[in-house]
């Protein structure tokens, strides 16, 4: 498997920041009541993650070990602020919905985690891709969570997509069913926790199945002789 394939697999599945590392749960759980919100925060995180990985990787030679954390934090904070300002300017509706959660991306451990674990040790090409893969993995989980909660809680999908994607996206909204009594729990924060638990469980089940089906080739390791014969 090439390095890029490896990175993609890690980010999207086997080391997914949300499902496996359980990083960045605070924004994840707070904003995923609809697909649109989830996608918005996911894309913002993706952008920050790619940017921070790229910059960290580029400057890694010049950053001494002792001050690497402050430098990383500064890079990330600056990036997030810039993105926040840009969102405020160009996707105002979404900004209002996500508003207070955008600054939280600064403290999203997934980002500093990748900077520390990957970008600070690898060249910029792979770091950029790692940021992309991890960010995409994070976004996917966010969108999935958002979709489940939106369906259960509102009976819709892509409600309010126009806030993110422009007026044309209003037609994306799907009214799955009309519910008189929505499952309120799904759109409340505890619902996010419970749904997240189920998604993680599902991932573990899939992993286990795969492991069972994949026939382990019976290998044997040569014993080392501790002593002369």
């Amino acid at each position: 498997m090439s390095e890029y394939q490896q990175l993609a697999k890690q980010g999207l599945w086997s080391n997914n920041p949300a499902l496996v590392q359980l990083l960045g749960l605070c924004p994840l759980l707070a904003v995923t009541s609809t697909v649109t919100n989830a996608l918005g925060l996911g894309l913002a995180t993706l952008a920050v993650l790619m940017g921070s990985n790229l910059i960290v990787s580029l400057v890694r030679q010049w950053v001494p070990d002792e001050i690497r954390i402050p430098v990383f934090v500064m890079v990330i904070a600056a990036l997030v602020t810039v993105i926040q300002l840009l969102m405020n300017a160009y996707v105002y509706g979404l900004y209002q919905a996500l508003g207070i959660f955008i600054p939280l991306i600064v403290t999203n451990c997934a980002i500093i985690g990748r900077a520390e674990a990957y970008a600070s040790k690898n060249p910029w090409q792979t770091s950029l891709f790692d940021g992309f893969a991890m960010g995409l993995g994070f976004t996917c989980v966010l969108v999935l969570l958002g979709a489940i909660r939106e369906i259960l809680g509102n009976g819709t999908l892509f409600a309010g997509a126009e806030l993110l994607l422009g007026p044309w996206a209003a037609s994306l909204k799907i009214e799955l069913f009309q519910i008189d009594y929505p499952l309120l729990l799904a759109i409340l924060p505890p619902g996010a926790f419970i749904t997240m638990g189920f998604i993680i469980a599902a991932k573990n089940v899939i992993d286990k199945r795969q492991k069972m089906h994949a026939e382990q080739p019976q290998k044997s390791v040569e014993r080392a002789r501790v002593t002369a014969q």
Binding site: W62, I67, P70, V71, M74, V75
Partner: peptide, 11 residues
């Protein structure tokens, strides 16, 4: 100096 440099650029 390095930290200051980064701070200045970021700000």
């Amino acid at each position: 100096l390095i930290l200051a440099l980064f701070a200045v650029i970021a700000t």
